[in-house]
Structure formats: structure tokens, C-alpha cells
Design a protein around this nucleic acid. Structure first.
Lengths: 252, 252
DNA sequence: TGTGTTCAGTTGTCTAGACAACTAGGTGCA
DNA sequence: TGCACCTAGTTGTCTAGACAACTGAACACA
């Protein structure tokens, strides 16, 4: 094990301290792919915690896909590399910054509009309810990457129109100012050809391939809070993501 | 609660029996979105299990995104609908069948080939190692949807070339015959225009938008076992998926 | 009125143990 | 040799408690 003592006076839970130490060992290469992680009993004895606490630490690593267990044999480090560019619920700003690109925006429209039928339905809002519309061209290193158009119910962010600097991160503002944190998003992706207007804004040839994203972002409770329709140029933007097999019972 | 007694002699774990009952109540509408689920203590007292067992049942529902918890308040049903068409690690066959379409394939090529550099690297195989190549046109209700080309190391499925009916489900055969079960897959999606050959095979106009998928499927241990490059027509095929926010610590 | 306190209820964390199910390796017997 | 059995080690499940942290409502007091 070779792990130093835990801080029992810390507000950080013991299982979490253990999880972080194991994670450090994996990241540093002390524990390599396919190798066994210390067993529940080893951790419990070595750090002076109960087996259930050690188990909770190991379980959390499994849930993250870092390790896997084999009953009767042990817990092992997964071979999969933790890629940074797996897609998450991130704003364009966050997504590009994690790739080390300089982010910028050009605002085309920022105003309150009444909800049309389709968007109102997606946001569980009344048709005609006032939405804040934010229409932007997103630039990475000064190169136009895509066109984004977001709609958020105005009642959720009453004075956003006055206070928001539309060139900054919308998600950050929603989180800091209104306590709205996106937990997940359902998205439909289509491939299409750029129309004349889109091509002009993105500075590509008309008919070039583009991605069209229609995304509804939700908070933890499952309530939808944002509807986004985006068009991204496909020559500069690829989608990397991870597919997992869900619990089979859910589909039955 | 109004739940009947658990079967303590069953091989099915108690927490799982509890999870299924709660799931039934949610699916039947007895528990609606936003409503509180029975608390840990209510379940424990009502069904005569310990609190940790009740907790494990509730935790499993949270992990699936069915419910969410608020400390000091309770556990509540999420508002998100369980959509069937969220993408998973599914074969084309499985994916189309869940949508109720009749599936068919036309085999263009089914033979052993030596691994080229790029594919060998993705599969952690030696360059030149023998791979089973399966090149197919996928049809749904007799309409050509996409072109798929799979590569699997031959050592993992020694007599696949002789025994496999190439018009059936590859994933099902790998699972049943070789015990290979895909756990997750990393995929890169691009949007492009159909070339002359692709357009002919898919019976679309040259230059039509298509999706290009490059997928590496892995088993639980993280070992990659299949490399697939596919081209799907974008007029018939959309991608629906769910983005989640991963543990922030992983990215640091 | 309004403000702070108390209290019941909830989830989060942790303990110390128990038995079951499974794996892998070793042992002994035929 | 080959097979059955045993055993140590591991994860999976379950128990019966404990205290901490937080929420929301009821209550008492100024």
C-alpha cells in the first residue's frame, strides 16, 4: 500500500481521500493498466478504516470507469485512457479552453423574444412565454467555428439582459449569478450542407458539410433550462464521445 | 410504501428487488416527476431491511439518473424521460430493432487481412497481425442506411470466418460464441459529403451529407477488440445522445 | 412583528462484524 | 496422471447501529 495516514479531522470524507490517493497512484503510473488495485481488506487494514469505507472508495473508481472488478479475483485498473476531449455538458467556452484555444464570440442578437411552439415544448414552458435569446458566432483562435442560438426562460434569469456580458461564458454566469448548474443535456446531431447565410457567417463555401446540434440542457432535477440550436463547420470540428452500455433493465 | 414483502430466499439481492419495485412505481406513474421517493428509513422499516440496504437501492436509481437526492430533504424522481433512442454501445442490428425496423445486410467483403498501422495502433495489435475484416451495407426496411467496415483481431475469434453467418448480428455472435461483450466504445464522428462510390452504394446523390463514424469498441477491462469505420447517410440517420457532466476531478 | 431557537426528518459518512459466492492454487487420493 | 477436495483470498450482500450535516417548520421570545 505505502500510503500515509488519512486526515480524520478533515471535512473531506475518508472514502474520498482514499479514492484520490488511488487515483494519484494510477495517474503517476505506480498502478498500471490491468494491475490489481489494493483489495478492500488491504486498504481497510492499511489505513485503519472499515471495509465498507474502503469499498466505497473502490466503488467510486469503478463508477468512473477507472477500474473494474472481478468477483473472487480483485479490482483492476482499466486499460482505457482518460481522454480529455470526451464530450461532456460543457459550454463552447469550456470545451475550447480545455483544448487550449483562445475563445471569442460575436453577438448577433441578444434580446427577449416570445417562445415559439417547438422551443416552448422542449423547455416545458408556455407558448409565447418570454425567453432570453442569445445568438452568437463562436470563434476559436479568431477562426469562426460555429453559430449558436440559445433560449432561456426569462423568469429563470430576470436581469440577465442588463447584467450579462454577452461575449463571456453563459454557463458560468448562470451558475454564479443564478445558481443554475447544468447536469445533463439531450442532444440530436444532424449532418447537413451549409446554406448561403451560414456559409457567409462561417466563411466557408456554400454546400460545405456542417453539424447541426439541437440541445436541451437540464439541471439535476431533470428540468430543462436551455434550448440551443447550433451549426458548426465540420472541417474544423469533430465529435469525440464515449458510448456505454446502460442497464439493460431500463430498456425493457 | 404499500409494497409487499421481499423474497429473502431468492438469489436476487434485496437491494435489487427494492430497486425494481421503485422502478415499477415510477414507470406506472404511481411516483411522478419531482415527487419524493420513500426515504431510506421508510423503506428500511417498511420492508424490514437495514438502512444501508435501502440506501443501496436508492443509490442505484440515482446512478441511473432516475432519481436525484437533496441532503436534508430527500430523494426525488427526475423529470427526464427515459428515451429509448439514446445511443449506447449497440450494434446496428440492435439499434434498429429497438426502433422496430427490419434489419438486413449485404456483405461486400468477409476475409482475413493484415492490420495496417492505424488500425493496429487502435487495437493495440501488432502491425500486420491478421484481422477479420467484415465490410457490409446495412439496410433498414430494405433501405440502405450505411456502410460499415469492422476489423477484429483473428486470434480473438479463431474460426469466425468459417462459422459466422455474415448477415446476422456480429455482436451477438461475439458474445455467444467467444464470450466477448462490449462494455464501452470511443467514437469520433465527422460530417462529410458522399464520394462517388459511397453515393452509389447508399443510392444517394454524390455530395450528399453523410456521417463518418470511427469507433473502437472495448470490453470491460478496457481492451479494444473491434475497430469500425462507417459511413451513414445523414438524411435518414440522426444521432440522439445524452451528455453528462463527469467528475471534475478527473479532468484536473 | 420579526427574529432566533429548537426539533423532527432526511441524506451523508463511518464502524465492526457476518455469511455467501466465486477464483485460483495446492493437496491428497484413486 | 487426472480428478476431487480443501483452503486462502477476494468481492457481493446484509445487518444494526452511530454521529454529522442539512432542511424546513414549529415555537418562543424580544
Amino acid at each position: 500500500m505505502a500510503l500515509s495516514a488519512l486526515d480524520r479531522r478533515s471535512v473531506i470524507p475518508l472514502y474520498y481521500q482514499i479514492q484520490q490517493r488511488l487515483l494519484d497512484q494510477i495517474r503517476s503510473g505506480a498502478l498500471k493498466s490491468g494491475e490489481p488495485v489494493p483489495s478492500e481488506l488491504e486498504i481497510a487494514a492499511g489505513l485503519g478504516v472499515s471495509r465498507m469505507t474502503a469499498r466505497q472508495a473502490l466503488k467510486s473508481l469503478c463508477d468512473l470507469g477507472i477500474t473494474y472488478t472481478q468477483r473472487g479475483k480483485g479490482t483492476f485498473v482499466s486499460a482505457n485512457k482518460l481522454e480529455k476531449n470526451i464530450r461532456q455538458v460543457l459550454s463552447f467556452t469550456e470545451e475550447m479552453r480545455t483544448r487550449g484555444l483562445r475563445v471569442d464570440s460575436k453577438v448577433l442578437c441578444f434580446q427577449a423574444v416570445p417562445a415559439v411552439e417547438e422551443i416552448a415544448a422542449a423547455l416545458h414552458a408556455a407558448s409565447g412565454e418570454s425567453l432570453v435569446k442569445l445568438h452568437r458566432i463562436r470563434l476559436a483562435d479568431s477562426c469562426p467555428m460555429g453559430i449558436e442560438c440559445s433560449y432561456i426562460p426569462q423568469r429563470l434569469c430576470p436581469d440577465l439582459l442588463e447584467s450579462f456580458d454577452a461575449s463571456t461564458s453563459l454557463y458560468q454566469t448562470l451558475s454564479e449569478r443564478y445558481g443554475i448548474q447544468m447536469a445533463f443535456a439531450d442532444e440530436v446531431i444532424e449532418a447537413a450542407m451549409a446554406g448561403a447565410q451560414e456559409a457567409r457567417l462561417l466563411r466557408i463555401a456554400k454546400g460545405s458539410p456542417v453539424f447541426i446540434f439541437t440541445r436541451v440542457s437540464c439541471v439535476q432535477t431533470g428540468r430543462p433550462v436551455e434550448y440551443v440550436k447550433s451549426t458548426y463547420r465540420a472541417d474544423r470540428y469533430k465529435i469525440a464521445h464515449r458510448l456505454t452500455r446502460l442497464n439493460r433493465e431500463l430498456l425493457a
